[in-house]
């Protein structure tokens, strides 16, 4: 009698026979795309600086200087993906950003920035082993709704830390804290807020029999910006929250049986914890 796993053997064999692009070709495309994005960013920065220069020149009555005087576009040696920076990237908006005396901005997400078990309730335990796909995340729901590319914030993530707080098998909270480049933490929230009205209902995996309803129940109640979304599916309710402070955002999936008020409170606590990762708090 075959094991269930045996049924997948022909699928694995098929996938194995697939003609795949060579690794060098995959890398070439990835590098090319990243380079194009950097060129676009540098071009935009140059326009900003030119604009500032024109404005300043108008103000003091002298010709504007060229963009080279103030712009230090980020270089990409040999087109390789840039590493997570350990020091601040040169700003493209003024000479002060090129100073080498500025303290290094933090990139890591400290443990103190994550929710603690006591923040969620009695009986919860913490695990940082969560590496799964989280098919129930708000991002995944947006994908089921055809809005998976509603934001490109993920391309600007610098550091990610996950946490899973659970109480038995049925009550849990999944937290992802992400540090973004520049203002992408704010942009991430804005993009989600713009996409949500297009997804009042979501068919999980395209199945109309597994339909979830999404309702925004609170906004901007904590941090520099926040949103709380109620998901109702098959008579069950869970909450999704996104909150950010500075360049750091937390995404929560609250599957604890929490009421709306409790979900708000948990989001507030998550927001306060973020201050451990944001010196300007």
């Amino acid at each position: 009698m075959p094991e269930i796993d045996d049924f997948f053997a022909p699928v694995i064999r098929d996938a194995g026979r697939t003609v795949w692009d060579e690794p060098a070709e995959v890398r070439r495309r990835g590098t090319s795309r990243r380079t194009r994005r950097r060129v676009a960013v540098a071009g935009l920065a140059a326009l900003v600086v030119v604009g500032l220069g024109v404005g300043a020149a108008w103000a003091v009555g002298r010709p504007p200087t060229g963009p080279d005087a103030a712009v230090t576009p980020e270089a990409s040696p040999s087109g390789t993906p840039s590493p997570t920076p350990s020091t601040p990237r040169p700003s493209t908006t003024g000479p002060t950003a090129t100073s080498t005396s500025a303290p290094a901005a933090p990139t890591a997400i400290p443990e103190a920035a994550m929710l603690h078990a006591s923040d969620v309730g009695a009986g919860y335990t913490v695990s940082d082993q969560q590496e799964g796909d989280d098919h129930g995340s708000i991002g995944m729901l947006m994908s089921y709704c055809g809005q998976g590319d509603h934001t490109s914030a993920g391309e600007h993530a610098l550091t990610l830390r996950k946490r899973n707080l659970s109480n038995g098998d049925e009550r849990y909270l999944l937290e992802e804290v992400v540090r973004y480049e520049g203002s992408w933490a704010s942009r991430h929230l804005a993009d989600l807020r713009a996409a949500l009205p297009r997804c009042p209902t979501v068919d999980i995996m395209g199945d109309p029999n597994a339909r979830a309803s999404l309702t925004v129940v609170a906004t901007n109640f904590t941090g520099d910006g926040a949103i709380l979304v109620k998901e109702t599916r098959g008579g069950q309710t869970q909450y999704h929250a996104v909150v950010y402070r500075g360049d750091v955002a937390a995404r929560l999936r609250i599957h604890t049986g929490a009421t709306q008020t409790q979900a708000r409170n948990i989001t507030r606590l998550a927001s306060e914890r973020l201050c451990a990762a944001v010196p300007s708090c």
Binding site: A15, T18, W20, D21, V26, R27, R29, G30, T31, R33, R34, P81, S82, P83, T84, E155, A157, L158, T159, L160
Partner: peptide
């Protein structure tokens, strides 16, 4: 579709492979 999506995912992975 599966192959296309998988291939695209690896391109995105290389874009940020250091992370």
């Amino acid at each position: 579709e599966a192959q296309d999506a998988a291939q695209e995912a690896y391109v995105r992975a290389w874009e940020r492979w250091r992370t």
